[in-house]
Computed example of a mutant assay.
Amino acid sequence: MKPVVSATNAWSCVVVSVFGIVILSAIAGLYKSGHEEFTGGIEDPQDGKAVAGTIFTAVIVYAVFLVFCGFQGFLHVRESRKGAIALQ
């Protein structure tokens, strides 16, 4: 297979995805536990578990990006080592 995106974009996407997963998981955990700073004010959401579910959906999207971009990055590594399969 040939990579779809450049190596720089692939590895940048991996880094951003890892940070997104970590940060959004922490925020979703705080909403799910009903932490006062997130669900204690008058204008804050009433149903913290619903908000946490939505944020966990975003975590799943970032995980898909992580897998795709990681695969693209490893295709670049394999291609740079001349390990790509060439059909002639």
Rank of each mutant, 00 (worst) to 15 (best):
G73E: 06
G83A: 11
L66S: 02
G40W: 02
F74G: 12
P3I: 03
R81V: 02
I42G: 00
I60F: 08
A63M: 03
T54R: 04
V61H: 04
S12I: 14
S17H: 02
G40A: 03
F68Q: 05
L87C: 08
G20F: 11
S80K: 15
C13D: 11
A63C: 06
G73D: 01
Y31T: 01
K2N: 06
G83M: 15
V22A: 10
S17W: 01
K2F: 01
G20C: 12
L75R: 15
M1Q: 05
A10M: 05
T39W: 01
K49R: 13
K82A: 09
S17I: 06
G41Y: 13
G20A: 09
G34P: 08
S6Y: 01
I55D: 00
Y62D: 12
V59C: 01
I21W: 07
I42D: 08
G29W: 03
K32W: 15
L75N: 07
P3T: 01
E37K: 13
F65N: 09
G34K: 10
L66Q: 02
V77H: 10
S12K: 14
S25A: 13
G70Y: 00
F71G: 12
F68N: 07
I27E: 00
A10C: 15
C69M: 11
L87D: 02
I23Y: 11
G29S: 15
Q88Y: 08
H35N: 09
C13H: 13
M1L: 05
I27Q: 05
T8N: 10
V22N: 05
G53N: 09
I55H: 04
V5G: 11
C69I: 02
L66M: 05
A52N: 13
S12Q: 15
A58P: 06
Y31D: 03
V14Y: 11
G70I: 04
F38E: 00
A52D: 02
A28V: 12
A52M: 08
V4K: 04
V61E: 08
A7S: 15
E43Q: 10
F74R: 06
I21C: 09
T54Y: 01
A58D: 01
S17G: 15
V64G: 09
A7I: 14
G48S: 04
K2W: 00
T39E: 01
V18H: 03
S80A: 14
G34L: 13
K32Y: 14
V16N: 05
K82P: 08
I23A: 14
V61K: 11
A7E: 12
F71I: 09
V61T: 06
F19Y: 12
R81E: 07
G73W: 05
G48E: 00
L66H: 02
G48F: 02
V4N: 14
F65H: 07
R78A: 12
K2Q: 07
